[in-house]
Design a protein around this nucleic acid. Sequence first.
RNA 1: GCGCCCGUAGCUCAGCUGGAUAGAGCGACGGACUUCGAAUCCGUAGGUCGCAGGUUCGAUUCCUGUCGGACGCACCA
Length: 587
Amino acid sequence: MTELKTAWKNIVAGALEAYARERGVEAGPDLVSAIVIERPPKAELGDLGFPMFPFAKLLRSAPAQVAAALASKIAADPAAGARGQARAEGPYLNVSLARPGICGATIAAATSPGWGSFGFLAGKKVMIEFSSPNTNKPLHLGHLRNNALGESISRILSAAGAEVRKVNHINDRGVHICKSMLAYQRYGEGRLPADEGLKSDHFVGKYYVMFNKLKEEDPRAEEAAQGLLRRWEAGESEVIELWKRMNGWAIEGIKATYERTDVCFDLYDFESDTYELGRAEVLKGLAAGVFYKEEDGSIWVDLEDAGLDKKVLLRKDGTSLYITQDIGTAIFRHGDWPYDRLIYVVANEQQYHFKVLFEVLKRLGFEWAAELHHLAYGLVNLPSGRMKTREGTVVDADDLMDEISALAAKEIEEKGREGAVGDMAGVAEKIALGALHYYLLQTGPMKDMLYDTEASLSFTGDTGPYIQYMGARASSILRKHEAGEGNAVKGRVRFELLCGDADWNLVKRIAEFPETLEASAKAMEPSLLAGYLHDLAVDFSAWYRDNPVLNNSDADLSASRVELVRAVRATLQAGTRLVCMPFLESM
RNA sequence: GCGCCCGUAGCUCAGCUGGAUAGAGCGACGGACUUCGAAUCCGUAGGUCGCAGGUUCGAUUCCUGUCGGACGCACCA
């Protein structure tokens, strides 16, 4: 489709230049660069549309006249004729593509193994950091959005040909970790997660919440937490022992949630291993004159000429800060695995932090700093407002999955499909994941989104399960065909039979998959693909109603449509995977 | 105060580099299951695209201002 578009752009450019010569106007490069391709609002108007407004002034003729003139020029060009037909539609030049060739090529491509893998990012190494949980509590809905974005973008970029390395930066040190440790020391009495019947990360999270109780009982609890951190930094074996034990629980539980939601990482790095990496780099930068030292010994960078502020990079006592760690980690990672691009999937509250970080790395002279990217995303809010740990309004990831999964199971039961589905719990889980991930990815990342339990747990309409359902329907047709049902087995595939408007519309949609994937990869925007999948599902659903596949009296048409269904299924299969939705043969 | 993001139908959201009557879903109302799965489909109602200027042949899209909301401006992470 992309090649077709550029081919047509060239044809239009040629005709435009010829027309300009006739009018005695010089066709400069800006004339050709003003050509835009759009999709006509109605299928009857053609497949491609070229608005002629920009040329009216230059060519000193009305847009409609230009369109008519170009249409007749193109009609006289046999090379163009092989690719389709152009006609004037008021001020627009609309093109109807030559259908048979495109049908054959599209369906052949879509039913071949490589569908959904492209090469325009081949040779690029992309590192992506996402999730990055704290080890003091379990994952919540906000993490699920982060995970879905990170995992989806990783899949999209690999599908685009890049070599992707997914990194999870575990925040396993700091006062907040010490708080849960302190509360456990006080109230835990040596119990294990199993003793309380809790998933291990929930067990740790419970003690983190209990720190609030501790604070009420002991006004010096905050100080005690700071003290515990100092003892941790001093490496006291008793503290380290407890820290290891509790982190182990937290991470074990968090990993179980990753597995359940089909998210995985190539590399885990731990803040406890990397938090001191940046200090040496800052000192190097000081020596190089990029940074400066205050009288009290703290080290700063002045970014005011870049529209940012001054920023401390090293405390007066020489210890590192959040940003120091990030400086060190980025440099270390590039040395370890020289990436072409590093993407941080982190909430948009931290946009300023990343601006500063990237600017600092640029000033340190790293040419790769230009390829650092903060993928910022908005919060997930509740109708009652922001989720708050203290108020207990945090939507826990595991609980949410349980809830959606139970609802899906109920739905299967109500529809009486337990038998057809087989593994009911497994299928319910996949539907839940499809619903959740589609919900989280259909919205553009920058927008805060509202999570309304009642409204959001729906399986009808513009939802993940709707798309999964269309996949299941397509699969069902193909299953029946494989089993020898229907007329297709007696027919011969002839792609020219799929040139009617209804089939063509669906073929065209399938042909858009590669360009959607490319746009999605370039913009790092899963929502484009999510929207595309919904469009495809809608087109398929309408087509499905009006166009018999297996029980078509024309055996050749039947056989050809089976191939079209195969292409739809392949596209849904490849596409849903990219937005982290399980594909279901049956549901 | 400065910075950044958002503001489209009652609600939740789409709307690609500016382009042909602004799209879905939910909710409301009315239809369609003896044919490939009704988690579906079709139809009706519902919008001064926050507001005001500007650029342009043309602005929901770009610019400026303004109002409203969120977030950020720690020797916390």
